[in-house]
């Protein structure tokens, strides 16, 4: 009886794992095959990868889109981590009634759907000449309630006597943050980095709104543009999807643990 249950449990988990991974395997294999073979349902890797790559490069500026995506995502991640960790630290370490009220107001911003701010943001950014710029990409999500909350939570475990000792040693408040808090909170920074980078890399609606110039296009936009043709070249399309997914999959495997901690950490 117990053995039967075990078998059922393994069978369910194996099935779930296969279903989870299959679409990605399909993508991987399709990227190496001719479109006609993909349509025939060929499920073994082919030797058409280079051809697909050449044909993709001829159609789209992959290098440019990759560069843009990396540039936007990295700039956003760095600035966002600095601003939000400073805030989370400020809210927790120096907390008083006034700051708690401000924190609660900030948490309300979590409820605001992007569709509701998108049009005014577009108007504001177009009159500030921020369309098609890195600044335009990063500003709306440079400060997020989620990250502030995450850093506030981690600042809770930052010992107060260390601060007192540092103050007696003559460190000012800013140096305490950079010299004491920053190095001890490495794992929180790793988690925040993973999440922010992934969100920035994957974002689609906002870049679609403000990046009208082909030169400012991001990878997800490039992939979405490819499907517009009448005849879909599946090999080329899946190669583009693969290229768009490689950075996030690498980040996922390198930082899987901190990613998992990050998405759940802020809610504990």
């Amino acid at each position: 009886m117990i053995k039967l249950k075990r078998v059922g449990q393994y069978a369910f988990l194996i099935l779930a794992s296969i279903l989870s991974v299959f679409p990605l395997i399909y993508m991987l294999i399709a990227a190496t095959n001719k479109s006609v073979d993909v349509i025939k349902g060929k499920m073994i890797p082919g030797n058409y990868l280079i051809e697909n790559f050449k044909s993709l490069m001829a159609q789209q500026d992959v290098g440019g889109a990759m560069w843009n995506s990396f540039k936007y995502a990295i700039v956003l991640t760095v600035i966002s981590l600095i601003i939000c960790s400073l805030a989370g630290y400020g809210f927790e370490i120096y907390h008083d009634k006034g700051k708690d009220i401000v924190m609660n107001i900030i948490l309300l911003a979590m409820m605001v759907p992007f569709a509701a701010t998108m049009i005014p943001l577009f108007q504001m950014f177009s009159s500030a000449k921020l369309l098609n710029t890195t600044m335009g990409f990063i500003l709306p999500t440079i400060s997020t309630p989620f990250l502030i909350m995450m850093f506030r939570q981690s600042a809770r475990s930052f010992p107060h006597d260390i601060m007192e000792a540092a103050r007696i040693d003559g460190l000012n408040e800013i140096s305490i943050f950079f010299k004491m808090f920053f190095p001890t909170m490495r794992s929180t920074y790793a988690a925040a980095m993973t999440i922010t980078f992934m969100n920035a890399w994957n974002s689609y609606l906002w870049p679609k709104v403000i990046m009208s110039d082909a030169k400012s296009m991001t990878m997800p936009m490039l992939v979405a543009n490819l499907k517009a043709g009448y005849v879909t070249d599946y090999g080329v399309l899946m190669l583009a999807v693969l290229l768009c997914s490689i950075p996030t999959i690498i980040v996922f495997f390198l930082l899987q643990k901190s990613f998992a901690e990050g998405i759940t950490g802020a809610v504990k």
């Binding site: 601003i83 939000c84 400073l86 805030a87 630290y89 400020g90 809210f91 370490i93 120096y94 907390h95 008083d96 700051k99 401000v102 900030i106 911003a109 605001v112 509701a116 701010t117 998108m118 049009i119 005014p120 943001l121 108007q123 504001m124 500003l139 709306p140 999500t141 440079i142 400060s143 997020t144 309630p145 502030i148 408040e173 800013i174 943050f177």
Partner: peptide, 27 residues
């Protein structure tokens, strides 16, 4: 110290006000 606390959180709070609440009002 209280004042430095406000300095720490000001950039993030101002950005949320400008990028979430202001557009919300405009919408």
């Amino acid at each position: 110290q209280n004042l430095s606390g406000w300095f720490f959180l000001a950039p993030a709070a101002i950005m949320i006000a400008l990028m979430s609440f202001l557009p919300m009002l405009k919408a």
